[in-house]
Amino acid sequence: MLSPTLLLQNLIFGVLLGSIYALAAIGLSLIFGVVNLTNFAHGDFIMLAMYISYFLGVSLKLDPILTPIIGFPVFFLLGIAVYLAIFHKIIRAPPLSQIAVTVGLLVLLRNFALAVWHAEPKSIPRTLLGYSYRLGSILIPADRLTGMLISIATFLILHLFLTKTKTGIAMRALADNLDSAALMGVNVRNLNMLTCALGIGIVALAGGILLTFQPVNPMTGLIYGLLTWSIVAMAGLGGVSGILLSGIIFGLADAFTAAFWDPRAREITIYILFILLLWFRPKGLFGRR
C-alpha cells in the first residue's frame, strides 16, 4: 500500500492543496496581525466567496477560476463595508468581545447562505481545468496546479508590497506598535480599512479556486474557519512565508489523511494538529512573536 508512487502522489497533492489553503488563510493573518482583530467569521467569508463564484459561474457562464476577476473587487469593497460597519467599532475591545461580535456575523452569513442557496451542496457546472497532467503514473490536476500558481503569485506580490512600498511597510509597523504608527503620521483608520479590504479581497481568489474542486454548502465556513485559524496559529505573527509554509503542512496532513485513513477524517486531523500546536508551540512555528 505504501508504494513510492502513492507517497509522491500525495506529497504533490498536499503541496498543491496546502498552497491554496495558505491563500485562504493569508487574509485572516493580515487582519489579525495588522488590524489586531480576532475574526471568527473568516471561514464564512470563504464560504460566501465560493457561493459568489458559483453564482457567477452559473449566471454568467464564467469558469470558476475566472470569477475572482469580479469577485476580488466585490470582496475588496465588502472588506471596506465590514470594517466600517462592524470591525472599526470593536478594534479596541477585548478579544472575547471581538469573538462574540464576529460569531454573530458568522451566524448571519450562514443563514444568509442557507436562505439564498439552501442546504444542498453546490458545485460548479463546469471548469476548463477539469483535466490532469500525467507524469508517469503521477497525476497533477490542472485546477489545483493553477490554484497553486495563483497562490504563489499572490504571496510574491504581497511580500513585495509589504517590504518595498511605504503603505506595506506602514501595515507592518501598525502590526508592531499602533501608537507609534499613529505618531509617525499614519492614519490608522484608513490603513486598517485597506488591510481589511485586501484581506477579504484575497478570500475571493481562494473561494474561486476552492470551488473548482470542492462543493460548497452553508456549513462550509466551519471547516475553513478551523483550518485557516489553525494555519495562522501555526505560522504565528511574522512574514507571509510562514503562512505559505504552514498552509502546506496542513495540505499535506489533509492529503495523507484522505489517502491513508479516510477522506472524512480531514477535520479530525486538522483539529488534532491544532491542539498539538497550541500545546507545544503556542507562539507558532515560524513567528517572531
Binding site: 511605504k166 511597510i169 506602514a170 507592518r172 509597523a173 502590526a175 508592531d176 506598535n177 501608537d179 507609534s180 504608527a181 505618531l183 509617525m184 503620521g185 499614519v186 511574522g238 517572531r288 512573536r289
Partner: peptide
C-alpha cells in the same frame, strides 16, 4: 516606541511617512 520587527532602515522610512 520602535517597530521591533522592522529593520532600522524601515523604521526610518516610517519616520518620513
Amino acid at each position: 516606541g520602535l517597530f521591533p520587527n522592522l529593520t532600522v532602515k524601515e523604521n526610518l522610512i516610517m519616520g518620513s511617512y
